[in-house]
Simulated scan of single mutants.
Amino acid sequence: MNESVVAALRAGKPSWPEAARAAVYKAEQQRLAEEKEPELEARRPVCTGCGTRFTDIRREAVQLTDWG
């Protein structure tokens, strides 16, 4: 989509169908996720024994969920 279409959709113009707004939103969310990915990867924990980066599943398992 070109920038004028995206700007019109962001402005909430009623002439655009809801599906088009949803497509723009989804594309924007994907772009934001792609921008954050390198930062998240850089903060990924590393095993002190072998130096291997944790997988997403292991990372979730070692996250602190409660102080008590």
Results as ranks from 00 to 15, higher is better:
A22H: 14
G68R: 15
D66L: 11
G68T: 15
C50G: 10
R59L: 09
E60I: 12
P17N: 15
R21N: 03
K26E: 13
L9C: 14
P45E: 10
P14W: 08
L40I: 05
V6R: 07
A19L: 00
C50W: 08
I57V: 13
R53Y: 10
A27G: 03
K36I: 15
E28H: 04
E37V: 00
G49D: 05
R10N: 11
V46I: 12
A19H: 04
F54I: 12
P14V: 14
P17A: 06
A7Q: 15
M1I: 11
M1R: 00
Y25F: 13
Q29D: 09
R44V: 08
G49M: 03
P14C: 06
E18R: 11
E37T: 04
V24P: 01
G12P: 09
A22D: 15
A27P: 01
I57R: 01
A8I: 02
E41Q: 15
A42S: 13
S4Y: 02
R59F: 01
E18G: 07
R44K: 10
S4Q: 14
W67N: 12
E35Y: 08
A23S: 14
P45L: 04
Q63F: 12
G49W: 09
R21P: 02
E3F: 06
Q29V: 09
T55S: 14
D56H: 00
R58T: 10
N2F: 01
C47R: 08
G12R: 08
R10A: 04
L32W: 01
V6C: 07
R10W: 13
E35H: 07
R59I: 02
R31K: 09
W67L: 13
E28F: 04
K13Q: 09
E28R: 04
E28A: 07
A27S: 15
V5L: 10
G49V: 04
Q29P: 02
M1W: 06
S15V: 12
V46P: 00
G12V: 04
D56Q: 04
R58Q: 14
A22M: 06
R43P: 13
L40D: 08
T55H: 02
K13D: 13
R10P: 06
R31S: 12
E60Y: 06
V62M: 12
R53F: 05
V5F: 03
A42Y: 10
Y25K: 14
V5E: 11
D66C: 05
L32K: 00
T52W: 04
P17S: 10
T48V: 09
C50T: 14
L32P: 01
A19R: 14
R21D: 01
T55P: 00
P45M: 02
V46L: 09
F54P: 04
E18N: 14
A11G: 11
A7P: 00
T52V: 15
V24D: 02
W16N: 05
E18C: 01
A11M: 02
E41K: 12
E28V: 01
R31T: 01
V46A: 11
T55R: 03
V46D: 00
R53P: 12
A19M: 05
A7L: 03
Q30C: 03
A61H: 14
L9A: 13
Q29C: 12
A22G: 14
R31V: 06
